[in-house]
Design a protein around this nucleic acid. Sequence first.
DNA 1: TTGACAAATGGAGACGACCTCCATATTTTA
DNA 2: TAAAATATGGAGGTCGTCTCCATTTGTCAA
Lengths: 192, 192
Amino acid sequence: MTADKPLRADARRKREALLATAREVFDAGGFFDLRFDDFARLAGVGTGTLYRHFPTREALAEAVYHGEVAALCDRARQLQATLPAAEALATFLRGMVDHMDAHEGLARTLSTLMADRSGALAEGSRALEQAVTDLVAAALQEGAVRDDMDAGAVMMALHGIGAAHDRPNWRAEADDVITLVLDGLRRPHSDG
Amino acid sequence: MTADKPLRADARRKREALLATAREVFDAGGFFDLRFDDFARLAGVGTGTLYRHFPTREALAEAVYHGEVAALCDRARQLQATLPAAEALATFLRGMVDHMDAHEGLARTLSTLMADRSGALAEGSRALEQAVTDLVAAALQEGAVRDDMDAGAVMMALHGIGAAHDRPNWRAEADDVITLVLDGLRRPHSDG
DNA sequence: TTGACAAATGGAGACGACCTCCATATTTTA
DNA sequence: TAAAATATGGAGGTCGTCTCCATTTGTCAA
Protein backbone atom coordinates (compact mmCIF):
# COMPACT_ATOMS: atom_id res chain seq x y z
CA MET A 1 0.00 0.00 0.00
CA THR A 2 2.41 2.66 1.23
CA ALA A 3 5.21 2.23 -1.30
CA ASP A 4 8.48 3.42 0.20
CA LYS A 5 9.77 6.37 -1.72
CA PRO A 6 13.35 7.37 -0.93
CA LEU A 7 12.81 11.12 -0.74
CA ARG A 8 15.55 13.44 -1.82
CA ALA A 9 17.15 15.65 0.82
CA ASP A 10 15.61 18.97 -0.24
CA ALA A 11 12.26 17.35 -0.78
CA ARG A 12 12.18 16.11 2.78
CA ARG A 13 13.22 19.54 4.03
CA LYS A 14 10.43 21.33 2.19
CA ARG A 15 7.90 18.75 3.24
CA GLU A 16 8.86 19.26 6.87
CA ALA A 17 8.61 23.03 6.50
CA LEU A 18 5.11 22.70 5.08
CA LEU A 19 4.02 20.41 7.90
CA ALA A 20 5.50 22.68 10.54
CA THR A 21 3.63 25.65 9.10
CA ALA A 22 0.40 23.70 8.83
CA ARG A 23 0.71 22.60 12.47
CA GLU A 24 1.10 26.18 13.61
CA VAL A 25 -1.89 27.30 11.64
CA PHE A 26 -3.86 24.37 12.99
CA ASP A 27 -3.11 25.30 16.56
CA ALA A 28 -4.10 28.87 15.81
CA GLY A 29 -7.40 27.57 14.53
CA GLY A 30 -7.17 29.05 11.05
CA PHE A 31 -6.41 25.96 9.04
CA PHE A 32 -9.65 25.76 7.12
CA ASP A 33 -9.92 29.47 6.48
CA LEU A 34 -6.45 30.08 5.08
CA ARG A 35 -5.92 30.16 1.33
CA PHE A 36 -4.27 26.90 0.41
CA ASP A 37 -1.57 28.68 -1.59
CA ASP A 38 -0.60 30.65 1.48
CA PHE A 39 0.67 27.57 3.23
CA ALA A 40 3.35 27.57 0.57
CA ARG A 41 4.23 31.22 0.98
CA LEU A 42 4.22 30.90 4.77
CA ALA A 43 6.49 27.88 4.64
CA GLY A 44 8.79 29.55 2.15
CA VAL A 45 8.20 27.16 -0.73
CA GLY A 46 6.56 27.52 -4.13
CA THR A 47 2.96 26.63 -4.77
CA GLY A 48 3.98 23.84 -7.12
CA THR A 49 5.95 22.23 -4.33
CA LEU A 50 3.02 22.43 -1.98
CA TYR A 51 0.75 20.72 -4.46
CA ARG A 52 3.29 18.01 -5.24
CA HIS A 53 3.60 17.09 -1.57
CA PHE A 54 -0.04 17.55 -0.61
CA PRO A 55 -2.44 17.47 -3.54
CA THR A 56 -5.36 18.69 -1.44
CA ARG A 57 -6.06 20.51 1.78
CA GLU A 58 -7.41 17.24 3.17
CA ALA A 59 -4.14 15.48 2.43
CA LEU A 60 -2.30 18.14 4.39
CA ALA A 61 -4.79 17.93 7.25
CA GLU A 62 -4.37 14.19 7.34
CA ALA A 63 -0.59 14.47 7.40
CA VAL A 64 -0.75 17.00 10.24
CA TYR A 65 -2.95 14.70 12.25
CA HIS A 66 -1.28 11.51 11.20
CA GLY A 67 0.60 11.31 14.46
CA GLU A 68 -2.38 12.29 16.54
CA VAL A 69 -4.65 9.77 14.88
CA ALA A 70 -2.00 7.07 15.27
CA ALA A 71 -1.79 7.96 18.95
CA LEU A 72 -5.55 7.62 19.28
CA CYS A 73 -5.40 4.20 17.69
CA ASP A 74 -2.57 3.14 19.97
CA ARG A 75 -4.56 4.34 22.90
CA ALA A 76 -7.50 2.25 21.73
CA ARG A 77 -5.31 -0.86 21.57
CA GLN A 78 -3.82 -0.11 24.94
CA LEU A 79 -7.19 0.36 26.59
CA GLN A 80 -8.41 -2.81 24.99
CA ALA A 81 -5.48 -4.71 26.46
CA THR A 82 -5.84 -3.42 29.99
CA LEU A 83 -9.55 -2.92 30.63
CA PRO A 84 -12.74 -4.92 30.31
CA ALA A 85 -13.92 -4.39 26.75
CA ALA A 86 -17.00 -2.35 27.56
CA GLU A 87 -14.99 -0.05 29.76
CA ALA A 88 -12.30 0.28 27.13
CA LEU A 89 -14.88 1.36 24.57
CA ALA A 90 -16.41 3.87 26.94
CA THR A 91 -13.07 5.32 27.94
CA PHE A 92 -11.98 5.60 24.35
CA LEU A 93 -15.11 7.40 23.21
CA ARG A 94 -14.97 9.82 26.13
CA GLY A 95 -11.35 10.42 25.27
CA MET A 96 -12.24 11.22 21.69
CA VAL A 97 -14.58 13.95 22.86
CA ASP A 98 -11.88 15.30 25.16
CA HIS A 99 -9.48 15.41 22.26
CA MET A 100 -11.90 17.16 19.97
CA ASP A 101 -12.64 19.62 22.71
CA ALA A 102 -8.99 20.34 23.41
CA HIS A 103 -7.87 20.57 19.80
CA GLU A 104 -10.52 22.45 17.91
CA GLY A 105 -8.89 21.44 14.66
CA LEU A 106 -9.22 17.74 15.26
CA ALA A 107 -13.00 17.76 15.19
CA ARG A 108 -13.01 19.73 11.96
CA THR A 109 -10.36 17.49 10.49
CA LEU A 110 -12.04 14.25 11.38
CA SER A 111 -15.38 15.37 10.08
CA THR A 112 -13.72 16.60 6.90
CA LEU A 113 -11.81 13.37 6.45
CA MET A 114 -14.85 11.23 7.11
CA ALA A 115 -17.11 13.26 4.88
CA ASP A 116 -14.53 13.01 2.12
CA ARG A 117 -16.74 12.22 -0.80
CA SER A 118 -13.73 11.39 -2.95
CA GLY A 119 -14.45 7.74 -2.22
CA ALA A 120 -11.02 6.67 -1.13
CA LEU A 121 -11.20 7.03 2.62
CA ALA A 122 -8.05 8.60 3.96
CA GLU A 123 -5.72 6.29 5.79
CA GLY A 124 -6.17 7.98 9.14
CA SER A 125 -9.90 7.78 8.92
CA ARG A 126 -9.77 4.13 8.00
CA ALA A 127 -7.39 3.37 10.86
CA LEU A 128 -9.63 5.11 13.33
CA GLU A 129 -12.67 3.24 12.14
CA GLN A 130 -10.76 -0.02 12.46
CA ALA A 131 -9.84 0.80 16.04
CA VAL A 132 -13.48 1.48 16.93
CA THR A 133 -14.56 -1.66 15.13
CA ASP A 134 -12.12 -3.69 17.19
CA LEU A 135 -13.28 -2.15 20.44
CA VAL A 136 -16.90 -2.91 19.66
CA ALA A 137 -16.09 -6.42 18.52
CA ALA A 138 -14.22 -7.13 21.75
CA ALA A 139 -17.10 -5.82 23.83
CA LEU A 140 -19.45 -7.99 21.84
CA GLN A 141 -17.36 -11.09 22.39
CA GLU A 142 -17.37 -10.31 26.06
CA GLY A 143 -21.15 -10.19 25.96
CA ALA A 144 -21.12 -6.59 27.16
CA VAL A 145 -23.04 -5.15 24.23
CA ARG A 146 -26.03 -6.19 22.16
CA ASP A 147 -25.32 -8.32 19.12
CA ASP A 148 -27.60 -6.67 16.57
CA MET A 149 -25.36 -3.72 15.85
CA ASP A 150 -21.89 -3.02 14.54
CA ALA A 151 -19.37 -0.22 14.81
CA GLY A 152 -20.79 1.75 11.88
CA ALA A 153 -23.42 3.34 14.08
CA VAL A 154 -20.78 4.45 16.55
CA MET A 155 -18.73 5.97 13.74
CA MET A 156 -21.80 7.79 12.54
CA ALA A 157 -22.38 9.23 15.98
CA LEU A 158 -18.75 10.34 16.21
CA HIS A 159 -19.17 11.86 12.78
CA GLY A 160 -22.14 13.83 14.03
CA ILE A 161 -20.16 15.06 17.02
CA GLY A 162 -17.31 16.23 14.83
CA ALA A 163 -19.53 17.77 12.19
CA ALA A 164 -21.56 19.73 14.71
CA HIS A 165 -18.57 21.28 16.39
CA ASP A 166 -19.94 24.80 16.09
CA ARG A 167 -23.11 24.22 18.05
CA PRO A 168 -23.25 26.61 21.01
CA ASN A 169 -23.52 23.87 23.60
CA TRP A 170 -21.23 21.43 21.85
CA ARG A 171 -19.34 19.88 24.73
CA ALA A 172 -22.37 18.97 26.80
CA GLU A 173 -24.26 17.64 23.81
CA ALA A 174 -21.29 15.60 22.65
CA ASP A 175 -21.00 14.00 26.08
CA ASP A 176 -24.70 13.25 25.97
CA VAL A 177 -24.43 11.57 22.58
CA ILE A 178 -21.69 9.31 23.90
CA THR A 179 -23.78 8.50 26.94
CA LEU A 180 -26.77 7.66 24.78
CA VAL A 181 -24.70 5.46 22.52
CA LEU A 182 -23.04 3.63 25.39
CA ASP A 183 -26.30 3.09 27.28
CA GLY A 184 -28.02 2.10 24.08
CA LEU A 185 -25.34 -0.42 23.31
CA ARG A 186 -26.09 -2.49 26.39
CA ARG A 187 -28.73 -5.14 26.12
CA PRO A 188 -31.96 -3.22 25.62
CA HIS A 189 -34.71 -3.46 28.24
CA SER A 190 -36.85 -6.50 27.75
CA ASP A 191 -40.10 -4.54 28.04
CA GLY A 192 -39.80 -3.19 24.48
CA MET B 1 -39.16 38.57 11.41
CA THR B 2 -40.42 37.62 7.98
CA ALA B 3 -41.44 41.04 6.68
CA ASP B 4 -44.12 40.70 3.99
CA LYS B 5 -42.82 41.97 0.70
CA PRO B 6 -45.43 42.37 -2.04
CA LEU B 7 -43.46 40.88 -4.91
CA ARG B 8 -43.86 42.23 -8.42
CA ALA B 9 -45.47 39.93 -10.97
CA ASP B 10 -42.38 39.12 -13.01
CA ALA B 11 -40.32 38.73 -9.87
CA ARG B 12 -42.68 36.08 -8.56
CA ARG B 13 -42.58 34.31 -11.93
CA LYS B 14 -38.78 34.15 -12.03
CA ARG B 15 -38.60 33.05 -8.44
CA GLU B 16 -40.96 30.20 -9.19
CA ALA B 17 -38.92 29.20 -12.22
CA LEU B 18 -35.76 29.07 -10.13
CA LEU B 19 -37.43 26.97 -7.47
CA ALA B 20 -38.88 24.59 -10.04
CA THR B 21 -35.46 24.11 -11.60
CA ALA B 22 -33.83 23.62 -8.24
CA ARG B 23 -36.42 21.01 -7.29
CA GLU B 24 -35.73 19.05 -10.45
CA VAL B 25 -32.00 19.14 -9.87
CA PHE B 26 -32.55 18.11 -6.29
CA ASP B 27 -34.55 15.08 -7.28
CA ALA B 28 -31.87 14.17 -9.79
CA GLY B 29 -29.36 14.34 -6.97
CA GLY B 30 -27.06 16.90 -8.52
CA PHE B 31 -27.93 19.92 -6.45
CA PHE B 32 -24.65 20.27 -4.64
CA ASP B 33 -22.48 19.52 -7.64
CA LEU B 34 -23.99 21.98 -10.07
CA ARG B 35 -22.39 25.38 -10.58
CA PHE B 36 -24.56 27.88 -8.80
CA ASP B 37 -24.70 30.10 -11.87
CA ASP B 38 -26.16 27.25 -13.87
CA PHE B 39 -29.36 27.28 -11.90
CA ALA B 40 -29.95 30.63 -13.51
CA ARG B 41 -29.19 29.47 -17.04
CA LEU B 42 -31.29 26.34 -16.55
CA ALA B 43 -34.23 28.33 -15.26
CA GLY B 44 -33.92 30.88 -18.04
CA VAL B 45 -33.04 33.84 -15.86
CA GLY B 46 -29.93 35.97 -15.45
CA THR B 47 -27.37 35.33 -12.77
CA GLY B 48 -28.14 38.64 -11.15
CA THR B 49 -31.73 37.60 -10.71
CA LEU B 50 -30.69 34.32 -9.16
CA TYR B 51 -28.51 36.10 -6.63
CA ARG B 52 -31.16 38.65 -5.79
CA HIS B 53 -33.68 35.95 -4.97
CA PHE B 54 -31.30 33.50 -3.32
CA PRO B 55 -28.06 35.04 -2.12
CA THR B 56 -26.46 31.64 -1.45
CA ARG B 57 -26.83 28.03 -2.41
CA GLU B 58 -27.98 27.31 1.12
CA ALA B 59 -30.78 29.84 0.81
CA LEU B 60 -31.98 28.10 -2.33
CA ALA B 61 -31.75 24.69 -0.67
CA GLU B 62 -33.73 25.96 2.25
CA ALA B 63 -36.41 27.39 0.00
CA VAL B 64 -36.67 24.14 -1.92
CA TYR B 65 -37.12 22.22 1.30
CA HIS B 66 -39.19 24.81 3.05
CA GLY B 67 -42.35 22.89 2.35
CA GLU B 68 -40.83 19.56 3.19
CA VAL B 69 -39.41 20.76 6.46
CA ALA B 70 -42.70 22.36 7.37
CA ALA B 71 -44.40 19.05 6.62
CA LEU B 72 -41.96 17.26 8.89
CA CYS B 73 -42.70 19.70 11.69
CA ASP B 74 -46.44 19.29 11.18
CA ARG B 75 -45.99 15.57 11.31
CA ALA B 76 -44.12 15.92 14.57
CA ARG B 77 -46.96 17.92 16.09
CA GLN B 78 -49.53 15.49 14.78
CA LEU B 79 -47.69 12.47 16.18
CA GLN B 80 -47.33 14.25 19.47
CA ALA B 81 -51.07 14.83 19.61
CA THR B 82 -52.08 11.26 18.82
CA LEU B 83 -49.48 8.96 20.35
CA PRO B 84 -47.79 8.46 23.70
CA ALA B 85 -44.85 10.81 23.74
CA ALA B 86 -42.13 8.18 23.64
CA GLU B 87 -43.77 6.50 20.70
CA ALA B 88 -44.24 9.80 18.94
CA LEU B 89 -40.55 10.56 19.27
CA ALA B 90 -39.55 7.14 17.99
CA THR B 91 -41.92 7.28 15.06
CA PHE B 92 -40.75 10.74 14.13
CA LEU B 93 -37.06 9.83 14.17
CA ARG B 94 -37.66 6.69 12.15
CA GLY B 95 -39.63 8.79 9.71
CA MET B 96 -36.76 11.23 9.40
CA VAL B 97 -34.46 8.42 8.32
CA ASP B 98 -37.06 7.22 5.84
CA HIS B 99 -37.29 10.69 4.42
CA MET B 100 -33.55 11.08 4.11
CA ASP B 101 -33.38 7.69 2.48
CA ALA B 102 -36.12 8.44 -0.02
CA HIS B 103 -34.94 11.93 -0.89
CA GLU B 104 -31.19 11.83 -1.12
CA GLY B 105 -31.09 15.60 -1.24
CA LEU B 106 -32.78 16.06 2.12
CA ALA B 107 -29.97 14.48 4.07
CA ARG B 108 -27.40 16.63 2.33
CA THR B 109 -29.54 19.70 2.77
CA LEU B 110 -30.18 19.20 6.44
CA SER B 111 -26.56 18.55 7.20
CA THR B 112 -25.58 21.58 5.16
CA LEU B 113 -28.14 23.77 6.87
CA MET B 114 -27.20 22.53 10.31
CA ALA B 115 -23.49 22.86 9.72
CA ASP B 116 -24.04 26.39 8.47
CA ARG B 117 -21.19 28.19 10.16
CA SER B 118 -22.65 31.52 9.18
CA GLY B 119 -24.09 31.72 12.66
CA ALA B 120 -27.67 32.56 11.86
CA LEU B 121 -29.34 29.18 11.77
CA ALA B 122 -31.69 28.92 8.81
CA GLU B 123 -35.38 29.06 9.62
CA GLY B 124 -36.06 25.50 8.54
CA SER B 125 -33.30 24.15 10.68
CA ARG B 126 -34.47 26.07 13.68
CA ALA B 127 -38.05 24.88 13.18
CA LEU B 128 -36.93 21.28 12.96
CA GLU B 129 -34.88 21.57 16.10
CA GLN B 130 -37.84 23.07 17.90
CA ALA B 131 -40.04 20.16 16.84
CA VAL B 132 -37.53 17.66 18.18
CA THR B 133 -37.14 19.65 21.36
CA ASP B 134 -40.89 19.55 21.89
CA LEU B 135 -41.07 15.81 21.30
CA VAL B 136 -38.32 15.15 23.80
CA ALA B 137 -39.84 17.52 26.35
CA ALA B 138 -43.19 15.76 26.07
CA ALA B 139 -41.58 12.35 26.52
CA LEU B 140 -39.76 13.67 29.54
CA GLN B 141 -42.92 15.02 31.11
CA GLU B 142 -44.50 11.63 30.57
CA GLY B 143 -41.61 10.06 32.42
CA ALA B 144 -40.68 7.98 29.39
CA VAL B 145 -37.13 9.24 29.06
CA ARG B 146 -34.30 10.01 31.43
CA ASP B 147 -34.14 13.54 32.76
CA ASP B 148 -30.41 14.23 32.46
CA MET B 149 -30.43 14.99 28.76
CA ASP B 150 -31.99 17.39 26.31
CA ALA B 151 -32.81 17.42 22.63
CA GLY B 152 -29.41 18.71 21.58
CA ALA B 153 -27.92 15.25 21.65
CA VAL B 154 -30.67 13.96 19.43
CA MET B 155 -30.07 16.79 16.96
CA MET B 156 -26.40 15.95 16.95
CA ALA B 157 -27.14 12.35 16.16
CA LEU B 158 -29.45 13.40 13.33
CA HIS B 159 -26.71 15.67 12.15
CA GLY B 160 -24.34 12.75 12.02
CA ILE B 161 -26.81 10.68 10.06
CA GLY B 162 -27.27 13.41 7.52
CA ALA B 163 -23.60 14.26 7.25
CA ALA B 164 -22.56 10.67 6.74
CA HIS B 165 -24.99 10.05 3.92
CA ASP B 166 -22.31 8.69 1.62
CA ARG B 167 -21.26 5.81 3.81
CA PRO B 168 -21.65 2.52 1.95
CA ASN B 169 -24.00 1.02 4.51
CA TRP B 170 -25.81 4.20 5.33
CA ARG B 171 -29.36 3.03 5.78
CA ALA B 172 -28.60 0.22 8.20
CA GLU B 173 -26.21 2.36 10.21
CA ALA B 174 -28.69 5.22 10.36
CA ASP B 175 -31.37 2.90 11.70
CA ASP B 176 -28.90 1.62 14.25
CA VAL B 177 -28.07 5.13 15.44
CA ILE B 178 -31.73 5.84 15.98
CA THR B 179 -32.11 2.58 17.86
CA LEU B 180 -29.15 3.41 20.07
CA VAL B 181 -30.45 6.88 20.79
CA LEU B 182 -33.95 5.66 21.60
CA ASP B 183 -32.77 2.82 23.80
CA GLY B 184 -30.24 5.09 25.43
CA LEU B 185 -32.91 7.64 26.17
CA ARG B 186 -34.85 5.30 28.41
CA ARG B 187 -33.89 5.12 32.02
CA PRO B 188 -30.43 3.59 32.05
CA HIS B 189 -29.90 0.20 33.72
CA SER B 190 -29.35 0.52 37.40
CA ASP B 191 -26.35 -1.81 37.38
CA GLY B 192 -24.02 0.91 36.00
C1' DT C 1 36.38 16.55 -8.38
C1' DT C 2 33.49 16.43 -12.08
C1' DG C 3 30.03 15.26 -15.45
C1' DA C 4 25.63 13.51 -16.35
C1' DC C 5 21.33 12.23 -14.98
C1' DA C 6 17.33 12.27 -12.10
C1' DA C 7 14.57 14.62 -8.86
C1' DA C 8 12.57 18.63 -7.20
C1' DT C 9 11.57 23.54 -7.32
C1' DG C 10 8.78 27.85 -7.86
C1' DG C 11 5.82 31.07 -9.54
C1' DA C 12 3.49 32.99 -13.66
C1' DG C 13 -0.59 32.39 -15.45
C1' DA C 14 -4.62 29.36 -16.99
C1' DC C 15 -8.90 28.09 -15.23
C1' DG C 16 -13.32 28.10 -13.18
C1' DA C 17 -16.64 29.39 -9.73
C1' DC C 18 -18.75 33.12 -7.34
C1' DC C 19 -20.78 37.43 -7.22
C1' DT C 20 -21.58 42.66 -8.47
C1' DC C 21 -22.94 46.36 -11.10
C1' DC C 22 -25.74 49.09 -13.89
C1' DA C 23 -27.87 50.16 -18.48
C1' DT C 24 -32.07 48.34 -19.95
C1' DA C 25 -36.70 46.42 -19.57
C1' DT C 26 -41.08 45.55 -17.19
C1' DT C 27 -44.72 46.53 -13.99
C1' DT C 28 -47.35 49.53 -11.20
C1' DT C 29 -49.29 53.83 -10.00
C1' DA C 30 -51.52 58.17 -10.68
C1' DT D 1 -50.39 57.35 -21.03
C1' DA D 2 -46.44 59.12 -18.59
C1' DA D 3 -43.61 58.91 -14.64
C1' DA D 4 -41.90 56.31 -10.83
C1' DA D 5 -40.72 52.17 -8.87
C1' DT D 6 -39.15 47.68 -9.35
C1' DA D 7 -36.75 43.91 -11.49
C1' DT D 8 -33.79 41.96 -15.13
C1' DG D 9 -29.55 39.86 -17.25
C1' DG D 10 -25.12 38.98 -18.42
C1' DA D 11 -20.55 41.07 -19.12
C1' DG D 12 -16.82 41.25 -16.46
C1' DG D 13 -14.25 41.77 -11.85
C1' DT D 14 -12.41 39.01 -8.08
C1' DC D 15 -10.40 35.42 -5.89
C1' DG D 16 -9.01 30.72 -4.88
C1' DT D 17 -7.24 26.52 -7.07
C1' DC D 18 -4.14 24.10 -9.65
C1' DT D 19 -0.77 23.16 -13.79
C1' DC D 20 3.14 23.52 -16.48
C1' DC D 21 7.81 23.68 -17.52
C1' DA D 22 12.32 26.23 -17.65
C1' DT D 23 15.49 26.27 -14.05
C1' DT D 24 17.83 24.69 -9.91
C1' DT D 25 19.40 21.22 -6.73
C1' DG D 26 20.88 16.76 -5.29
C1' DT D 27 22.89 12.11 -6.25
C1' DC D 28 26.06 8.89 -7.86
C1' DA D 29 29.58 6.68 -10.59
C1' DA D 30 33.93 7.13 -12.53
